[in-house]
């Protein structure tokens, strides 16, 4: 008797697990929270604030999706993942989406069976060294000890870069940004290499950031973006268009301050009307309500607001928009039209 109950439970769990990959939206709605994989802690991008709440540039994407789907940006269960555990967590269904400085590459998209829904930060790999080493270029790093996060694209770029330039190095593999920071500050490695944004964010937390420089060479393209499992196009569309809505909102001047006002009555811009649900039934097309974009934007503001608040020039991290400006400002942010 007990055995049959046991096996029945396993069989049911197996069936549920099989179905989970098919309809993520229903799962999330039934559960009432969004499981979102984030980094274990990168200042500005994903961190817990003084009250223990998750905040940051990547975290804001999770909150926007939760707001669009569940109507509340706080209904997120954040799952911290390392560079090594993130893909297993997503593939196994432990998280519904990853918003965790993950580089969009061919093999991750095609071979690992994930769908990247967009790019929320255009980045590149850089090197940080102590100023007193007197190094001014990455080409002078022959023989250096380099701290590198394992399971990342930066690990492979680093190997390629040193091989192509005929230089040797001593890799020190580490798991998390915090661990890298500790090793680097203890002088157990000369160089810390990761995405330039991550370097800037890490340096901002040092006691004396001015003692460290980020070398001018950017050795790779690192388009970082949120991703979901392949095979659930509806869910991929929801995450993609929630993110696009944030970008379009900035382009059209919709902010967290005026979005509620704008959604009360149709404005004279039809694209805003379509997005905010005052015109047409666009939300229903992907299984959401009319107000989804309003809630997503109200949760943390548009892309520009999220950027400025978490990593912009007025924050300690102090990143310029650069490539991440709107296409109208000479950047690469270019969301498809909302119609």
């Amino acid at each position: 008797m007990q055995k049959s109950v046991f096996f029945g439970t396993i069989a049911a769990a197996g069936l549920l697990a099989g179905m989970a990959s098919a309809a993520t939206l229903e799962d999330v709605k039934a559960r009432g929270t969004l499981n979102c994989g984030v980094a274990t802690g990168v200042p500005g991008f994903a961190f817990t604030d003084a009250s223990g709440e998750w905040d940051g540039f990547d975290v804001a994407v999770c909150r926007a999706v939760a707001a669009a789907v569940l109507g509340d940006g706080k209904k997120v269960n954040f799952v911290p993942t390392t560079g090594k555990t993130r893909f297993t967590a997503l593939a196994s269904g432990e998280v519904d989406m990853l918003a965790r400085n993950t580089t969009w590459t061919y093999s991750r998209d095609v071979d690992l069976k994930f769908t990247f829904v967009g790019v929320n930060y255009y980045d590149g790999q850089g090197f940080m060294v102590r100023k007193d080493l007197g190094v001014t270029s990455a080409k002078e790093l022959d023989g250096a000890t380099v701290c590198i996060q394992t399971g990342t694209t930066t690990e492979l770029n680093l190997a390629d870069y040193f091989r192509i330039n005929g230089m040797s190095y001593e890799p020190v593999p580490i798991e998390t940004n915090a661990e890298a920071q500790q090793k680097y500050l203890a002088n157990a490695c000369d160089v810390y290499t990761t995405d330039a944004s991550g370097l800037a964010a890490t340096r901002a937390t040092f006691e004396t950031p001015a003692d460290h420089i980020i070398l001018p060479e950017i050795i790779s393209k690192e388009p970082l973006g949120p991703l979901v499992r392949q095979g659930d196009d509806q869910w991929a569309d929801i995450v993609r268009w929630t993110f696009n809505a944030l970008v379009i909102a900035e382009e059209l001047g919709v902010t967290s301050a005026n979005v509620v006002e704008m959604s009360k009555a149709p404005t004279n811009n039809p694209e805003i009307n379509r997005m905010l649900g005052t015109e047409g039934e666009y939300g229903a097309m992907m299984g959401l309500d009319k107000e989804w974009a309003v809630k997503a934007i109200a949760a943390g503001g548009n892309y520009g607001e999220i950027f400025e608040r978490n990593i912009g020039e007025k924050t300690p991290i102090g990143l310029a928009r650069g490539l991440n400006a709107q296409w109208t400002q000479g950047g690469l942010l270019y969301a498809p039209p909302f119609r």
């Binding site: 297993t88 071979d111 399971g151």
Partner: peptide, 24 residues
Amino acid sequence: AIAVGYMDATGTLGGITLNQTGRE
């Protein structure tokens, strides 16, 4: 060993190779 970055069988085959190829 994985905790201190010593590249043993778990670190190479069960770590980086697993992660870069996705063949868990």
